[in-house]
Computed example of a mutant assay.
Amino acid sequence: MATSRFAAKAEPKPLYRASLGYRIKRDRYLLLLVLPCILYYIIFKYVPIFGIAIAFKDYNMYRGVFASDWVGLKYFRMFFESPDFWPILRNTFLLGFYKLLFGFPAPIILALLINEVRNSIFKRFVQTISYLPHFISNVVVAGIVVMFLSPTSGMVNRLLEMIGLDKINFMVEASWFRTIYVSTDIWQHVGWGTIIYLAALTAIDPQLYEASRIDGANRWKQMLHITLPGIAPAIVILLILDIGKIIEIGFEKVYLLSSPVTYETADIISTYVYRTGLANGNYSYATAIDVFTGIISFIFIIGANQISKKVSEHSIW
Rank of each mutant, 00 (worst) to 15 (best):
M1I: 13
K9P: 12
A10T: 12
K13N: 08
L15V: 14
R17N: 10
S19V: 05
I24L: 09
I24R: 00
R28M: 11
L35P: 09
Y46V: 07
P48F: 02
G51N: 12
I54D: 01
A55F: 05
F56W: 01
N60E: 09
Y62M: 09
A67W: 10
G72F: 10
D84R: 13
F85P: 09
I88P: 11
L89C: 13
L89F: 12
R90L: 08
T92E: 03
L94V: 14
F97L: 14
K99N: 14
K99S: 13
K99R: 11
P105D: 04
P105I: 09
L112N: 09
N115S: 04
N115T: 06
R118I: 10
S120H: 14
I121P: 00
F125M: 09
T128A: 14
Y131D: 00
S137Q: 02
V140Q: 01
V141M: 00
V146H: 15
L149V: 02
L149R: 03
S150I: 00
S150W: 03
W176I: 05
T179G: 14
I180S: 03
S183F: 14
T184Y: 03
D185I: 01
D185N: 09
W187V: 07
Q188K: 15
W192V: 03
T202S: 15
I204E: 02
Q207G: 15
A211E: 00
I214E: 07
I214P: 11
G216Y: 03
G216L: 06
Q222N: 10
A232Y: 08
P233A: 08
L239K: 04
L241G: 01
D242V: 00
I243S: 03
I247C: 05
E248R: 04
I249N: 03
F251M: 06
V254K: 06
S259C: 06
P260R: 11
I268N: 07
S270P: 07
N282Y: 11
N282C: 13
Y285A: 06
T287S: 15
V291D: 07
V291P: 02
F292K: 00
I295K: 07
S297Y: 02
N305K: 02
S312K: 01
H314S: 10
